[in-house]
Nucleic acid binder design. Structure first.
Lengths: 202, 202, 202, 202
DNA sequence: AATGAATGAGTATTCATTCAT
DNA sequence: AATGAATGAATACTCATTCAT
């Protein structure tokens, strides 16, 4: 029987990460208190330091884990497609699904930009650059092959990413549309235009 | 004349708003200290309370001013257009220009969502609802008149807004594109598709 | 009438210095808690920071004040003497009297050495070097003029200083000897030998 | 063989004492953390308690060992001398040599006075009393036998002890003087005067 | 309208120590 | 005899806010 109430053993670190994720999502990094985090985990505040080195490091670890997962899963999502239209579709499908599923991770990654902004290059930079780089590559490849017409590939990629990421801010699981429907709508919008001019008068 | 230590008179409130805007943008609302704000203004921390009631109220005031300006200028930008394609173009043009010019105001408005999230309806909700409502109206009007084909007007509006707002995160005045060029690219993307399939083979 | 119990106004800093001096003397620098210091002063712990910047700075300020006073008073004690025996006598007299009167200041100055030891040159180094330099000067001057015979002037100076400073550790105001008597004994010991061989047998 | 992480066996206690001596010397008792001590030994902090009962007890043990050694070696140094001048010379020789060799032990013994001061009689009191008692005895014996002239034997003893102990603070093994030379200088100073008036004019 | 000094609750972090394993 | 995780109290220091002057 354990000595006291409260979490114990190797599960504590997992509980800290889970509670940290939730609390930073709810209150923001600065406003999250380690006392509150410890309370949610069921240990004393000082005991957190058996598992983390600093509050900042906990944030970084959560962000890093998110970014590694994002990149790994994105790579997997694209690995069996090679034609640009298919790759674009796979990109959109993955990105929307991931951002709906990992809303909190996405949110706290912005803490990185916000909190340490403009001092140091945020650790999310590499991830963002890699993700947008992949999308730019798809667009340029399609443009080169004549399958797409793209105005400015870079701005297009940033636009698409912002649009897809934005799903975090409004999607509700109990809302009007299911995840699948949202994916379908976004895929259609990216592939054929958000607003399509009707057939030109002849 | 430069702002000096011991600054006083009716300019103090303006200085507080300016310094507050900059500091919240740089550090986030929670991490901004009123002592630092007071130092930037050139007064003692306690003296701030001759001008503001609380730190939170200062944030709200900045956000409210931003949102009122956004809505007022948006209304003005749309007031002399009535055909949906023109209105959509005007909307995009205005939104991009405004977000490039008011990067910091946009940024701190998110503090609102972040900090007081999920407790109370954030004051930005009305603004967001009004803005997106206006855009949805344009899209639906165009769809009704047969000038546009739009899949899901609401998702399309959210997508467009996210895309346009995203310009804040990457635009640099000394970057590859001028504000005018960025506006042109976004307008084109919204009007005719981000990625356009090439002419179908016949 | 003041708003709360507790010290107020420009006297607070003096009270902090007095209480800090006493507490560091009693418990040592590391073991002195700012909470306790604040309580002794009659204010809240946080209010200390209206007067000091850090705990370390408080220590340094106390040490610096002590050292400046020591050097200034020593200079004054020596200023009207010029023959080495008189200067030596004046040095001893001053040093014993000062160390009896400023026991606590002397004690806490050692915290400097102890606490920040061997990392940085302690701020007391200049004072110690200046004091011992002055004494060495007296001894060398007397040796040169033939008024003294001194073996190793530097070791002699260190020895004398240690002897004189040591009075701090055992002198009690209510003890067997008065301050004047102690000064007389030390002066005699320094001038004619701690232990004097009796007249050599002939 | 070097001490390695995971050190165990009967050598652990020795390693704890050695590391404790060094750390208290470097940082002072209060500032020494048991975590750091454990790290230096190569074990976890909790494991220290298989060897020591409390942090305070470790300090006391180190001090007691030092004091027992000092008293034992002093007794041995004096055991084959009986004439006061010889005993005084032996005392000085021993004391200087011991304090040069055991600088760290001497230093930490003062922690005792500092830390627990004025609450309880420090454990060093017996040692100091015994040491100074022995010296006073030598001086008085010499005075009684007519071999010495001593003003105030007690003050003289305290003065000599402070002087000899002070060697800790300035002696450097690579300095101008060897240990032997320092001993010679001190012996001479104690026996014939720090500063000797030159031969009186006749 | 500004100051300077105060409050009291809060912060992240460290500490010596305990104990089941 | 060692570990790793826990405790609970303590640490220096910061915070937004108040208010007599």
């Amino acid at each position: 029987m354990s000595r006291t109430a409260g979490s114990h053993g190797p599960k504590t670190m997992d509980a800290i990460r889970a509670a940290g994720l939730q609390l930073i999502f709810e209150h923001g990094y600065e406003a999250m208190s380690l006392r509150r985090l410890a309370a949610d985990v069921g240990i004393q505040a000082g005991s957190l330091y058996n598992h983390i080195s600093t509050k900042q490091q906990l944030l970084f670890d959560l962000i890093d884990a998110h970014m590694r997962a994002l990149l790994a899963e994105l790579a997997k999502a694209l690995q069996h497609t090679d034609r640009p239209p298919d790759r674009l579709r796979a990109f959109v499908t993955f990105h929307v699904a991931y951002h709906i599923a990992r809303k909190r991770e996405v949110f706290i990654s912005y803490s990185d930009c916000a909190v340490w902004s403009r001092k140091t290059t945020p650790r999310s930079w590499h991830c963002a650059a890699s993700t947008s780089g992949k999308l730019i590559g798809i667009l340029e490849q399609g443009a080169a092959s004549g399958e797409f017409v793209v105005g400015d590939a870079q701005v297009a990629a940033f636009g698409i990413l912002a649009m897809l990421t934005g799903v975090c801010t409004w999607f509700r699981p109990d809302g009007r549309l299911t995840t699948q429907q949202v994916i379908a709508v976004y895929t259609e919008m990216v592939a054929t235009g958000i607003v399509r001019p009707s057939a030109p008068p002849r």
